[in-house]
Computed example of a mutant assay.
Amino acid sequence: MILQIDLNTLLVLFRETSIIVAIYGIYVLSLNLEVGYMGLPQFGKVMFLALGAIAVGGIATKVALLIYSHVISSQLNISPLSDLDTYCSAYQYSAIGIINNIFSNSPLSGLAFFFMSITLAAILGGVFGVLMAGPALRLREDYLGILLLVSAETVRVISTYTPQVACGVFGAVIPDPFAWLREGRQWGYLAVTLIFLLLSFVILERLGNSPFGRALRAIRDAEVAARVFGKDIVKFRVRVLATASALAGVAGALLAFYNNFVLMGQFVPLETFKGWAMLIIGGTGNNIGALLGVVVYYVIDRVLSLYKEGIRQIINVDPIFFQYIIFGIIIILVLMFRPQGIISERPVKTLKRHILAKLRAEA
């Protein structure tokens, strides 16, 4: 059964998939820095995605409510920050609608709110990454993985059932900093996410090919030998966790702006293992492979979603569980026949390409 899709629907599908791929591309690139380069058992990665969302829905949005409180009070006759329970349950959409109207007429205000939110997300993620570096220095890999997993769940549960964080179970409606783009908002946001993805890729690629990146690989492959040669393992782990966590926080903020809504209950451990699945499929220790894994994952995900009714008629199974089965089979096949992923880890570039070619020719 061939699904008929008109051009406009296909464009929307391409746009929405590309935005998600760009956001999760940043997320998986940060995971690759920890897992592929450093070899850390990062099983609590979703925590930093959630912290990025908290920075937007729980901090930046409250700042916006404080700044525009006089306008909101004059139009709705309420003070949102004085009674958060009532605001979260009854007045969110009205209050945020007023802020969106302001942003639609003032692009600079919207952009200021956006960059403030991204900065807060990076800082919050980075700070928690440094805090988690303490246990990373003292625990064995298996215990560290368990601790990170439990920490992520703790953050999710506390934030979900604490309205003061991001409106708890109600979820937090967040202002749209790109409301001034109007009909072109989604295409504009695609450009924004692609720019952040490109910046993240360039930074991590240069980092991976630097002496710092070579040291990370040395620590991953032979920690004792790296320590003997004078590498400070503590400093490297702290820097890696801080950098990767800050990037994951940015990804969480971008995801929140994509949804224009933050529901902390969505940041379940499955989000961590989705990132691992993408990384395993694409290849660890390779930024291009990591991005390719994200693309492959979401292309398959979208195809299965489009044909879910046909799948249901053929095998009579819930399409969601069928997706889990398919990805489980793919991961097993990758681990059996190509454990290095689609693109294997490449040697570190220490010289320019033309210099390497010249040296090979001379040899």
Rank of each mutant, 00 (worst) to 15 (best):
G289Y: 01
V296F: 09
W276T: 08
G289S: 10
V268S: 12
V299P: 06
G285C: 03
A277S: 15
I315S: 10
P269M: 10
E271Y: 06
V268Q: 14
S305Y: 12
I288N: 09
V299D: 02
V294I: 12
V296N: 03
L304R: 06
M278G: 08
G285Y: 00
N286M: 05
Q313M: 13
Q313I: 03
M278F: 02
I288K: 13
K274I: 15
V294F: 04
I314V: 15
I315T: 12
N287Q: 10
P269T: 07
P269S: 02
R302Y: 01
K308V: 00
K308G: 05
A277Q: 09
L279G: 07
I281D: 04
L279H: 06
L304T: 05
G275F: 06
E309T: 13
E271C: 01
D301C: 02
Y297R: 12
L279Q: 05
D301S: 14
A277G: 12
I280D: 03
L292W: 00
L292E: 02
I288G: 13
R312A: 10
G275H: 08
V296Q: 03
E271G: 02
E309W: 09
T284Q: 15
Y297K: 11
Y307S: 08
A290P: 08
E309V: 11
A277N: 09
G275A: 12
D301L: 07
